[in-house]
Simulated assay, not measured.
Amino acid sequence: MPYEWIAPDVGAPDAPLAELHLWPYRSLLRRDFVVFISATVALILVPLLVVIGSPVLWGLLPFFIIAVAGLWYGLHRSYKDGELLEVLRLWPDRITLHHHNPRRGDKSWEANPYWVRLKLDPTHDRVPNYITLKGADRVVELGAFLSEEERAALFDELDDALRRARGAQ
């Protein structure tokens, strides 16, 4: 699952009761990226072997370079977008959400967990099983990049964590 509950550091002062890290799913690892680009270059080069030594090669070569560069750029941008990270920390007296987006900057939210309302919207327009937290006069989304099933499982786990935090007050 592209989210993980971090065990609290019991010895640390002001350690949260629970900490949750969420990130987008990565289907292509960095080492597979090199293999994929190499295989693509090799497959494109095979037809070019026929025209080596002729002027046609120079006509086709720019298109080959543009195709590989476009693929490289697209995958690199996908990796950059995948650096998105949401960190939710839960204490008996407060809950914080830190949303790190490498292209849009960081956003933070803080509220009292007693007043926070967790909501799961199974028929949301944009994302099925849409999870929101409402508190401190603000509504924030959580894990919109997760799959529908992952958001449903996360909702149950987060609901349990919030109940424990409210009970610890």
Results as ranks from 00 to 15, higher is better:
73 Y>E: 06
50 V>F: 05
49 L>P: 00
154 L>G: 02
95 I>V: 12
43 L>S: 04
94 R>D: 02
76 H>L: 13
73 Y>R: 02
169 Q>K: 04
164 R>K: 12
90 L>F: 03
60 L>M: 12
69 A>E: 09
166 R>M: 06
63 F>A: 09
147 S>F: 11
159 D>Y: 08
152 A>H: 05
162 L>I: 13
127 V>P: 06
46 V>G: 00
145 F>C: 06
139 V>A: 03
152 A>D: 13
140 V>H: 00
82 G>M: 03
156 D>W: 11
48 L>H: 13
2 P>M: 15
130 Y>Q: 00
58 W>K: 10
3 Y>L: 04
114 Y>H: 08
104 R>H: 09
45 L>M: 08
57 L>V: 13
94 R>N: 03
67 A>H: 15
85 L>F: 00
130 Y>H: 12
65 I>N: 14
51 V>G: 01
164 R>M: 04
76 H>F: 14
50 V>T: 03
20 L>D: 14
31 R>P: 08
33 F>T: 11
14 D>T: 01
36 F>E: 06
164 R>Y: 08
99 H>W: 15
130 Y>N: 00
80 K>F: 11
31 R>I: 14
112 N>H: 14
137 D>W: 00
151 R>K: 04
76 H>G: 11
151 R>G: 07
160 D>E: 15
161 A>W: 08
87 V>I: 09
45 L>P: 00
23 W>S: 12
57 L>F: 12
94 R>T: 08
70 G>V: 09
12 A>S: 10
92 P>H: 03
41 V>R: 01
56 V>T: 13
32 D>C: 01
119 K>M: 13
116 V>C: 09
168 A>W: 06
126 R>M: 08
10 V>E: 13
22 L>S: 05
148 E>Q: 08
45 L>H: 00
165 A>N: 15
165 A>T: 12
119 K>E: 11
102 P>N: 09
9 D>I: 03
167 G>C: 04
151 R>L: 12
122 P>D: 10
159 D>K: 15
24 P>E: 07
6 I>V: 11
44 I>Y: 08
9 D>R: 06
77 R>A: 13
71 L>D: 01
81 D>N: 06
128 P>D: 13
165 A>R: 14
97 L>I: 07
157 E>P: 06
4 E>W: 08
151 R>Q: 03
162 L>Q: 14
112 N>C: 02
75 L>G: 06
35 V>H: 09
84 L>I: 09
100 H>D: 15
150 E>L: 02
12 A>N: 11
28 L>T: 05
96 T>K: 15
110 E>F: 01
94 R>Y: 10
139 V>F: 00
39 A>T: 07
159 D>L: 05
2 P>Y: 10
119 K>D: 13
139 V>Y: 00
168 A>S: 14
162 L>P: 05
112 N>V: 13
1 M>E: 10
152 A>K: 10
27 S>N: 14
86 E>I: 00
132 T>S: 15
34 V>Y: 15
31 R>N: 15
55 P>F: 06
24 P>S: 04
107 K>D: 15
